[in-house]
Design a protein around this nucleic acid. Sequence first.
RNA 1: GCCCUGGUGGUGUAGGGGCUAUCAUGCGGGCCUGUCGAGCCCGCGACUCGGGUUCAAUUCCCGGCCAGGGCGCCA
Length: 438
Amino acid sequence: MESLADWRRSHYSREVNPDMNGEEILVMGWTHEIRDLGGIIFVLLRDRDGLVQVTAPSKKIDPGLFENLRKLKKESVIAVKGTVQESPKAPGGVELIPTDLRLLNQSQQPLPLDPTEKVRAEIDTRLDSRFLDLRKPSVSAIFKIKSTMLHSVRVFLEKNGYLEVNTPKLVASATEGGTELFPITYFEREAFLGQSPQLYKQTMMSAGFDKVYEIAPIFRAEEHDTLRHLNEVISIDMEASFHSDEDVMDVLEKLVVQAITDVTENCEEELKLLDKDLQIPETPFERIDYDDVIDLVNSKGVALEHGEDLSRAAEKAMGEAMDGYYFITGWPTEIKPFYVMANEETPEKSHAFDLMYKDLEISSGAMRVHQHDVLVEKISSKGLNPESFERYLAAFEYGMPPHAGWGLGAERFNMTLTGLNNIRETVLFPRDRRRLTP
RNA sequence: GCCCUGGUGGUGUAGGGGCUAUCAUGCGGGCCUGUCGAGCCCGCGACUCGGGUUCAAUUCCCGGCCAGGGCGCCA
């Protein structure tokens, strides 16, 4: 093992090109593969951006260096100094003729999975050795796309006057109802992990922040065991004063289109690695009323009664009938949370909407109740106790503006960008019913 | 939580009441100067755990644990 000392990377693999012929460079990374042909050794060095071939012909390099290259193990960390050589025979038309090598850290053998992907591994094996799994270019591509998407979302919202806020994830009580919460010990009291920033972002409307967003984890203690649920996910949440449901649906579809545009422009390589042909959808997205959803689903032979949430079979039927992104509007008031505003003329219908991608719900939102007395009434009618919402309700007594907002599941959105069907793939270290490590 | 399916070298698999347990990849060693899923030769490495049936269980039965898929819950 050798020390890094004064060696510093001069180039990432992706930056090495034939125009640099003759240049002295220094690359650092992992030995992805070693092909020892006897008189010539090829070492594929991998870094965050890709691969570069180090070519060592025995006659042209120092014998000691040649022996050290021969002894390298897969996935060891190395730094290579060398001369860039333009060569039509090399991958990418360029290779590095080494002049010096430092073995910075050795990797044990055998590896718990194969980063070259010659032999595939199951998701469980992959998650157990996630650090190695993430070295695969096709896996890290998912997170480069996620990073690009999140950056795009932030830029879009900032440009549109939204303020990024951070609300507590340690909360005193079950807020919205609906989902189970994770209880935790908070000194001498019981507390919970937050299921949603909903009540806080509404409070920010009363605080006069006008337009806010938050990108943060939410926790759901449901024992679900599916390809599209996790117990910890990232929620992209926004709330805007003096906005209706229609207004924030416009914001949502513009944001989705912007993120897709940015990903197609900046993640060409990553999309190719994932074999995903990402198309920019047209706006406005199709809007379909809940009543029509019932009819459509029933016409497909799937039973669904008015007043029911969509079953999995109903979602699948919708996925077959609809193409890409679409909104479901006009949800029955009774199956939506207490903070959702009912329609003025037809109070059995609400101002709530879901954004779907084929058979996957990726976002839901609504225009909210902003009148204190109506809210108290709705909390009671849901079987909840208004007294436990005292601090939240106070914000509605001193000038709460009309407002609307939504929450977009970052991982589910990412699934639509990458074409993956297992949500676990889109989280570095997923938390599901069984998995709490690594 | 329910239903279905499965658990075989490091990884991914074939098989199946008595075998030396299949193949690929990997790993170790050897040969090889243009590999790019390099090639060739030699070698290494495995039946989820507990109980039962049986002369004999990795194989059949029961249970546990774990996993995959579906559903439910949920977003």
